[in-house]
């Protein structure tokens, strides 16, 4: 049995609208994802994330190239692929007229789980997602956040080898989001492969052990968080909280042309690209100007890396 959950080779997708020029949504993408990993697929809007996800889940046929899920080709054996995946689409996808419980049971039935085992599993999932009080209410009577909760809860009714989650946390309250992230880690530890697309980069930073950043249908960077951080070795985040913000400090820092600068009440936050010694000199100089309550200097976040990579690629011409 292969250790690879997803294999993508030179994948191309060209949309040909009735009017206007063809759009190359994926431009020769190649990568592989190992089983049991939480794989983050990141990129700005229009980067090709959803197109890639649609191809991997058999919703869309590629123009060229190959993609395999658990060893099955998405074009030649779509049914085998569908037996091995469950998907949370970006859009809300629930049975409005059915109760929460029936949504879970109906979904499970499509994956061959029914009768008593399905009911028992549904009871466990309802409890896990704090949906028990709503179990017998029709989904149409629930708020958008609860509908999203039902949509994500369905994924836990079955044990497919691969889970795809496209912006799974949108509309979800922070407490539940944190819990779901924990459940996803548990599922990965059990050997399920999880493919996550998100614009909330802190989520990816916290969850993913393998990240692919794409833009304009092409790979921009790939690796675990540590490997990606090496791409931005000279990028630093500085946070300083003063008792009272010294006058003229903001202008003084702005003159250094940081990549990001924000001042909120008595706290200054900036991201800058410089040598380690230069950053420490700057912090030391600023600290002498007022009474310092808190200071933090850290390496780049995933968001910093992402922004840097996108800005670096912004000038490149788009292939059509």
């Amino acid at each position: 049995m292969t250790d690879t959950a997803l294999e993508v080779e030179n994948l191309v997708k060209i949309y040909r609208p009735r009017r206007g020029a063809p759009v190359r949504a994926l431009d020769g993408m190649s990568f592989a994802v190992r089983r049991g990993h939480i794989f983050g697929l990141l990129g700005p809007n229009g980067a090709g994330k959803t197109t890639l996800l649609k191809i991997l889940t058999t919703l869309l046929r590629p123009t060229d190239g190959r993609a395999r899920v658990m060893g099955f080709d998405v074009v030649a054996a779509p049914l085998e692929v569908r037996r091995r995946v469950s998907v949370v689409l970006q859009e809300s996808a629930v049975e409005m007229f059915l109760t929460v419980r029936d949504n879970l049971l109906s979904f499970a039935r499509f994956h061959g789980l029914r009768g008593r085992p399905a009911h028992e599993r549904a009871a466990a999932v309802l409890a896990r997602f704090q949906l028990e009080p709503e179990a017998d209410r029709k989904v149409m009577d629930l708020s958008g956040g609860f509908r999203r909760r039902v949509q994500v809860a369905k994924m836990f009714m079955v044990d497919t080898s691969v889970m795809f989650l496209d912006e799974f946390s949108s509309g979800m309250d922070p407490l539940l989001k944190r819990a779901v992230m924990g459940y996803l880690r548990e599922e990965a530890a059990r050997g399920r492969t999880i493919v996550l697309t998100t614009l909330v980069l802190s989520e990816a930073e916290e969850l993913c052990d393998d990240i692919l950043i794409i833009n304009r249908g092409r790979q921009v960077a790939r690796g675990d968080l540590y490997a990606l951080k090496l791409l931005s070795q000279n990028l630093y985040e500085v946070l300083m909280t003063f008792e009272t913000l010294p006058a003229g400090l903001e202008a003084q820092v702005a003159a250094l042309a940081p990549l990001r600068l924000s001042v909120h009440e008595n706290t200054l936050e900036l991201t800058l690209k410089a040598d380690e010694a230069q950053v420490l000199d700057l912090v030391s100089a600023l600290a002498r100007q007022g009474r310092l309550l808190k200071v933090e200097v850290s390496g780049p976040t995933l968001e910093d890396i992402f922004v840097e990579l996108m800005e670096a690629g912004a000038a490149a011409p788009r292939k059509e």
Binding site: T57, T58, L59, V85, S86, V87, L89, E91, F110
Partner: peptide, 8 residues
């Protein structure tokens, strides 16, 4: 669209 990804 979700149903189109179900195993059928």
């Amino acid at each position: 669209y979700e149903m189109l990804i179900y195993p059928l």
